[in-house]
Write a protein that binds this DNA or RNA. Structure first.
Lengths: 162, 162
DNA sequence: CTTCATGCAAAAGATTTGCAAGTTC
DNA sequence: GAACTTGCAAATCTTTTGCATGAAG
């Protein structure tokens, strides 16, 4: 039984990689590897789609930690810095995050009428992005690319409506 | 004398267009055109770069309105819907907005260590996006395009740290 | 004159911080 | 042991709401 529908599984190996990356960050900063920090990483990794800090707090709580609020909030910057999570826009509502690790390619075409999401990948984009990053001296760790619009069938209904 | 450095000027005509667009939205929803709403739009339009709701509140206050907090917060969804503002990710910190009107397309290169944001615009991207949208029958209204990575100087400090 | 908007105060939420007690290295 | 963490409570900040009074259409 699952408390949330919004769960996914990362292949075991990928999850391990992510945890390793996180541990490396902790080590580099002379911070400690604790059970709850590892639990937070795993809870984050098993999320699918966008989620709030609060949802993550609940997931970690469901894992048996009493009041992980403060600890989760304190861990989020670490998750961002280690590239496990990334912040998301989408709608301008609450602060949202999503898993970035292992999902470096994230290209969506979204209909903001009906919510349809078309995923796409376009090698030409990748190349341009790499060039651009290099030009500015950045090392890319992820990207977020969403094209928002109105899909064909919603354009159709719009026409009827007016 | 200016209260803020973060100010810009839209060509008068463009500003008028934006206000018109906003008024049209109000009209369509049977909402009222009030001085403060127009002031909020203008204050928003004269901002450059990313800003918070609170900064907008201060700008409007500087325009002579007593306590525009609630009204500004109530207006922001309208500004988003009319396409005058758009939300931005950037750093996952506070909720940020930026002017979208007349600047529909620009993208961000973000350092997730120090938060530096480099804006870029790349015609080749725009063309690919249009092609792609067309191929799927979408009419584009906005897009979010964030490249996330580590900037040159943070890569530098990383090297020192390890 | 009817309906909506504003300003102010208070509520609700979200995030951060201080601290004593418990853990990791 | 020394330094860092955690959980809990309290403090902050941000955003939303309720309402009486004042405008817009």
């Amino acid at each position: 039984m699952r408390a949330h529908l919004n769960r996914g599984e990362l292949p075991g190996a990928a999850s391990t990689d992510a945890v390793d990356r996180f541990k490396r960050l902790l080590h580099d900063r002379a911070l400690r590897v604790t059970d709850i920090r590892v639990a937070i990483v795993k809870a984050a990794l098993s999320r699918v789609g966008h989620f709030t800090a609060d949802e993550l707090v609940h997931d970690v709580q469901a894992l048996g930690f009493q009041d992980p609020r403060a600890t989760v909030y304190r861990a989020i910057p670490l998750l961002l810095e280690s590239g496990i999570l990334q912040p998301t826009v989408v709608s301008g509502e609450r602060r949202l995050y999503e898993v970035a690790f292992g999902k470096e390619h994230h290209d969506h075409l979204i209909c903001n009428r009906c919510g349809t999401v078309v995923e796409f990948q376009f090698e030409a984009f990748e190349m341009l992005q790499r060039d651009l990053a290099e030009k500015h001296g950045f090392r890319l760790t992820a990207h977020f690319h969403e094209l928002i619009g109105v899909c064909a069938s919603c354009q159709e209904s719009e026409r009827h409506a007016s």
